[in-house]
């Protein structure tokens, strides 16, 4: 996950640099000389392509495409601001910086050079540090994608292979009417996916095909579902997957809840004790 963030950051940085080199005004500031027009245009196109690549990477690698876009925009802002502060610090800019920007205007100008008051500077610095701490903490807290975790279940149902996992490893979410719900994600192998009409999930063995539970939904390879959990769930309760193929065949597989959702089982045991 951190690798993906670093990749997005560096692609954004390179993309912005490409855009800057593409302009007549900023190219000399960034690389120290003015490239020829076709080179600038090439660099400008390259910059946009790199930004697009970073966006594509973000939408693919983050939890969902929307999270990817937000992450991309976030890194885009950070990159932009850091370039603003980085460009004047480049070694070939030093000469330009040492020259006074304006001719001194006598006594009235001395006011501008008064040092910034200390408390204000400390407030600024601590705000900056707090921002850094918060962003690092939230970066460390990001969960890996459910199907890339080590607790996923891999198996086959009928002729089709799949990977199944709960979307988060937390206890169930208690919703309307105090009903606990849990979300799961499944991904079938690419050729299997095309042969599958629908997949359903429920706790306890389905007593009829039309009572097989909630259907997985979603229009990419990953299909998600959120199911109601029975009030008397125990570690021995079973999670049942029903898969219906486009040829009409029905296949089922099941696991004990303690294997798929250990935190949920613990939560139910706790509920039973406090009852």
């Amino acid at each position: 996950m951190i690798g993906a963030h670093l990749a997005i950051l560096s692609l954004n940085l390179l993309g912005f640099a490409g855009l800057a080199i593409g302009t007549e005004r900023y190219a000399p500031q960034l690389v120290g000389f003015k490239p020829a027009k076709p080179e600038r245009k090439a660099s400008w196109i390259m910059g946009w392509l790199l930004l697009a690549l970073a966006l594509a990477l973000a939408t693919q690698r983050m939890e969902t495409a929307v999270v990817g876009i937000v992450v991309w925009l976030g890194w885009l802002s950070l990159t932009g601001v850091s370039l603003v502060f980085l460009m004047p610090e480049l070694p070939w800019q030093k000469a330009a910086r040492s020259a006074p920007r304006r001719a001194p205007r006598g006594k009235a100008a001395s006011n501008d050079n008064a040092p910034v008051r200390k408390p204000r500077r400390w407030i600024g610095l601590s705000l900056l540090a707090a921002t850094a701490v918060v962003s690092i903490a939230s970066l460390l807290r990001t969960e890996t994608m459910p199907l890339s975790r080590e607790d996923t279940i891999e198996g086959t149902v009928g002729p089709w292979s799949f990977t199944l996992a709960e979307i988060d490893r937390d206890p169930p979410e208690v919703m309307h009417l105090d009903v606990p719900l849990k979300a799961y994600r499944i991904r079938f192998c690419e050729t299997c996916d095309l042969e599958i009409l629908r997949a359903y999930l429920k706790v306890n063995k389905p007593r009829a095909l039309r009572a097989s539970g909630m259907a997985f939904g979603g229009n990419s390879w990953d299909r998600d579902v959120e199911i109601q959990l029975p009030a008397n769930l125990t570690a021995e309760s079973e999670l049942w997957l029903t898969v219906v193929g486009k040829d009409g065949s029905v296949h089922r597989a099941s696991w004990p809840m303690s294997e798929v959702s250990p935190a949920t089982v613990r939560w139910f045991e706790q509920q039973e004790k406090t009852r």
Binding site: L177, V179, E226
Partner: peptide, 8 residues
């Protein structure tokens, strides 16, 4: 997520 039916 679509809205899931719940029953008690």
């Amino acid at each position: 997520f679509a809205h899931e039916p719940v029953l008690k």
